[in-house]
């Protein structure tokens, strides 16, 4: 009897959860479906759900008409460029904080975090004018530097929380066994640091890919990534739902997949280790 009640409860909860999940996911699902409709089907009344003539013409069109590939490559350059630059700066810093902490380590960490809380508009005007004067406006290099700087505190923090979990005792043991410094690093520390570095890379790529203040304000066309390309649909001409949907799907699909795989690390990175 009790088992039957708990089974009924499980089925009830399952239905409720799937229904809520479907509702939350619906805008993405609808964008996916619309991307395979013709512009006319996309605005038909009543809306067509599944039974329409599926077409891939929108995906072909956005490349032919808007040179989609150009914006996609910019997004990739910006995400990877800022991440690599970030790793070069953040790994040594986090390493030093985790393995040779001093009294001030905590203060430095918190100070770094506080820079992340500086609102973009607080530094927007000088950066904008500086970029004009240096010829960096609408350049990939300029944006890579800005994205690197806004995400550097998160990278240092996340790497720090991972590095801190590497047991130091193991190094002593290796030294006793006669391991050289080189062996220590390549055979013991590196393998233990890799998962933390990988998670940090994923989070940073997600944040850089979706950043939509600096990418919108510091680019016009040359260095414009997908966030800016999609923004160009805000003043549309004619029917554009299907085109917008196709462009949107291509823009969010890679990050959606990366994000789905890294959800656990995300909690850690985005809360600066405050919730595990």
């Amino acid at each position: 009897m009790a088992r039957q009640v708990s089974r009924q409860r499980k089925i009830g909860m399952t239905i409720l959860a799937w229904f809520v999940g479907f509702l939350i996911f619906f805008p993405i699902l609808w964008t996916f479906l619309t991307s395979f409709k013709t512009e006319l089907t996309a605005i038909s009344i009543p809306p067509q759900f599944l039974f329409f003539d599926w077409t891939t013409e929108n995906y072909v069109n956005i490349q032919a008409q808007a040179n989609y590939f150009h914006f996609m490559m910019n997004s990739i350059y910006l995400a990877l460029g800022s991440t690599v630059l970030g790793l070069i700066f953040a790994i040594p810093a986090a390493w030093a904080m985790a393995f040779s902490p001093t009294k001030r380590t905590k203060d430095v960490l918190l100070w770094m975090l506080s820079t992340k809380m500086l609102p973009a508009v607080g530094v927007y005007i000088p950066i904008y004018l500086l970029f004009i004067n240096l010829g960096l406006l609408d350049s990939r290099l300029g944006l890579i530097i800005v994205l690197f700087l806004i995400n550097l505190p998160i990278m240092v923090w996340m790497l720090y929380t991972y590095f801190k979990e590497i047991p130091v005792d193991i190094l002593e043991a290796a030294r006793m066994d006669g391991a050289t410094l080189r062996q220590e690093i390549t055979q013991i520390l590196a393998p233990m640091a890799v998962p933390g570095i990988a998670s940090t890379v994923l989070l940073n790529v997600i944040l850089a890919w979706n950043e939509a203040f600096w990418t919108l304000n510091l680019t016009t066309s040359n260095a414009a990534p997908l966030t800016a390309f999609i923004a160009s649909f805000s003043s549309p001409q004619g029917n554009f739902y299907a085109t917008l949907s196709a462009a949107s799907m291509l823009a969010i699909a890679p990050i959606l997949i990366v994000g789905w795989f890294s959800q656990k690390q995300l909690v850690r990175g985005l809360t600066f280790g405050a919730v595990k």
Partner: peptide, 11 residues
Amino acid sequence: VIAPFFVMPTV
């Protein structure tokens, strides 16, 4: 449920 978080703001 977590999918919307990865959607870029403009989209």
